[in-house]
Amino acid sequence: MFLAFQYPIEIPGVATMQFLKVAANAQRKARGEKEYTVPEFMKHVRAKAEALNINQDMLKRAVNVGFSGGEKKRAEILQMAVLEPSLCVLDETDSGLDIDAMRVVADGVNALRSPDRAMIVITHYQRLLDYIVPDKVHVLSDGKIVKSGPKELALELEEKGYANFVGQAA
């Protein structure tokens, strides 16, 4: 399982590449798979990083330290791509992103979509859903799912607002 944070924290002194490697190998160990060797891992990360517009320089820097909002979110998606989780939770990944950055992040997320992987995307806006087209939409109010529907439900919400649902939950 993977949780993409709304506000990824900065960890000075831990290089992104080293962090990714330790995390990926911990996963593989837990799954009973062979750990990555350094060259294997470099190859694995590089391809994924390029797709997300993350350059080598960013990988050498400490985890999220001095990254812009967009860079942090891209780094989160890179972690997700490297760790290959079966369930992903994306918590307001769209906050603080401009249109271009949102597209890069969404492309990254879409590339990870597969029948073997579930994703929960948490957002307040339709905007992100133009890029990441959901299979199902659930409306959560006061900790309960108050309505479920197809992707059109999100469009309906965008038009009418949440007001109708807030009452129901109470």
Binding site: I9, V14, F19
Partner: peptide, 24 residues
């Protein structure tokens, strides 16, 4: 918070602590 973030990425606690000490 650092420890939690590392652990949320599947890094076992002992290893996460070691990483943070190395970073320090």
């Amino acid at each position: 918070d650092h420890l939690f973030y590392l652990r949320s990425r599947g890094i076992p606690e002992a290893e996460a602590r070691s990483l943070l000490v190395q970073a320090f």
